[in-house]
Amino acid sequence: MNTTVAAAVSEPVSRAAPSRWRPSLSRSRKWALWGAYAGLILFAVFFLIPPYYMLVTSLKTSQQIAAIEGNPWALPWPPTVSNWLALFTDTQFPIFFRNSVIATICTVAISMAISILAAFSLSRMRFWGSATLATGVFLCYLIPETLLFIPLFQVVGFLGLMDSMWVMVLVFPTLSVPFCTWIMIGYFQSIPKELDEAALIDGASRLQLLLKIFIPVAMPGIIAATIFAFTVSWAGFLYPLAYIFSFDQMPLTVGIASTMIKADVFQWHMIMSAALLAALPPLVVYAFLMDYYIAGLTAGATKG
């Protein structure tokens, strides 16, 4: 979507430039382009250092890591995939992965159900205080988790969910629901009112209106919100760190760092292999759905 906008924007410029300015303009353009590439490469290197180094380290044996001589940045020769295989046989990685998957699927389902229903109501119907609630949802999005984790510690203890992976399903929606609702209100409001009036006149119920018109029309928004909820719960760190202590209940983010340190020895080749695999699901989703991801980011405003 953005690319078409960019194409539409950049085209008139070249056409509009008067012919006698063209030589100097194109020369300065060319320089600007080369400068841009140089700058971008510089920043791309900075941004991609950690994932690259994760990959390099995950392909090394512990002897290759311990060798103080030699270039740590170079790909090891011969590379080994034994770390990746060992993750699944010798460590609790599969358990962490399973916990992360379960917590994320539940969180996404709950978040989307809550936010679609609420957004449907807030964007089309009125009740006492509905306008205040719409603003309030946005303000709630601004409450950081670091403000809530201590009182929630008491709440979680009271509910008997301490040290259970289900605590993530309870508290992760607080991170995703406000923003998902906010995105969905925006998308639902952009649906022309004539459309639901036509459906109501044809005798559709509210439920049919939601299922047959709102959800299909606002699909890009739903995908963007789903991606957001997925990313947030997959990356959740503070809550599980505070409320989960048993290894068999931990998600990936907390589990990797806390179990692969054996007797104060950091097994960096294992930590980096696990980290790489843990970072993969969001990266894959992002690679395929980049436009939705970015639409979600720039819809309204978001955290960063």
Binding site: P50, Y53, L252
Partner: peptide, 24 residues
């Protein structure tokens, strides 16, 4: 598109995971 995709990678990785790589 390509550059934007590449430059957004740090933001897409879970922060705790990216920080582990920095720690190392």
């Amino acid at each position: 598109r390509k550059w934007r995709g590449m430059l957004l990678v740090p933001w897409v990785m879970p922060l705790a995971i990216g920080t582990l790589a920095w720690w190392w």
